[in-house]
């Protein structure tokens, strides 16, 4: 019986150097606890003000050629005493207001309940959470998801229309690209929704014995991939909606000319 000896270099036994937190993590760790809530309040507040301005104070539908602003899509009524945006903005805004990610963001930043983890709350009053009106209405998130599905469908149709120049030829413009990126980001946010994740398969206990169990299991896994980055999709899609709207405002006001190629 022989003994086999394998030589191991001392270097391979040395423990890997501890790198610790990365530079970004160190910066985030060094920020005071109120930095994140203050940022969220500022950004969401500005988004709210911008939404009011573009929907109600700019006059008419924000449209330039075949480019239609997401704030006005689908255009249900083009004329009337109130802005056409009023009829379509409700479901996307309420969808975001009841979204599980945004709930975290505004409970922390606006309600300070809590403002940050392991940080004491400023107001010590009777806490009811989501057990009482109006916050228990957040449980209706899934129905707003259904409505937003319809809106998202219209936004994809708008992108399709944006590929067509007014003279009927196919066009590729900067606006087309912006609208396409916007609808992709919005779809990533919408289809990463926690309620959708539950409805598509998360609510099942036993995939192997359920109707369409295999398909629903696969769908649940795909939605889970999107869901893991739900906050990123939420912020990026919010910014892309604003960028798209600003861009069409600039075209409409004649401040900027859309660079494009017509085939």
């Amino acid at each position: 019986m022989s003994t086999q000896v394998t030589k191991v270099s001392p270097a391979s036994l040395a423990s890997a150097p501890h790198s610790g937190p990365g530079p970004v993590e160190r910066i985030l760790d060094s920020l005071p606890w109120w930095a994140l809530p203050a940022t969220v309040v500022t950004v969401l507040g500005l988004f709210g003000l911008y939404s009011i301005w573009t929907a109600f104070l700019t006059g008419g539908i924000n449209q330039s050629g075949t480019y239609l602003s997401p704030f006005y899509s689908p255009t249900i009524w083009k004329t009337g005493p109130v802005s056409p945006a009023l009829w379509v903005l409700g479901s996307p805004l309420l969808f975001r207001a009841t979204c599980y990610y945004y709930r975290k963001a505004y409970y922390r930043s606006f309600f300070w309940d809590p403002p940050a983890c392991a940080v004491g709350e400023l107001r010590h009053r009777k806490y009811r959470g989501e057990t009482a009106f109006p916050l228990f209405l957040n449980n209706l998130h899934r129905f707003l998801f259904y409505l937003v599905l319809i809106v998202t469908g219209f936004l994809w149709y708008d992108v399709y229309l944006a590929f067509w120049a007014p003279n009927g030829h196919v066009q590729l413009g900067l606006g087309t690209g912006i609208m396409l990126v916007n609808v992709i980001l919005l779809s990533g946010y919408t289809f990463g929704c926690h309620s959708w994740r539950h409805l598509v398969g998360g609510g099942l206990d036993c995939y192997s014995r359920s109707a369409l169990g295999q398909a629903r299991y696969r769908a649940w896994r795909w939605v889970t991939i999107l869901n893991q980055r739900h906050p990123v999709w939420a912020w990026l899609s919010m910014f892309s909606v604003v960028i798209t709207d600003v861009y069409i405002h600039l075209l409409r006001a004649g401040i900027f000319v859309d660079p494009h190629i017509v085939f």
Binding site: Y100, R103, K104, Y107, R108, D113, P114, C117, A118, Y127, R128, G129, E130, T131, L135, F136
Partner: peptide, 10 residues
């Protein structure tokens, strides 16, 4: 008391 949870993720 599941409804008390306001999903702040701490």
């Amino acid at each position: 008391g599941l409804g008390y949870c306001n999903i702040t993720k701490c």
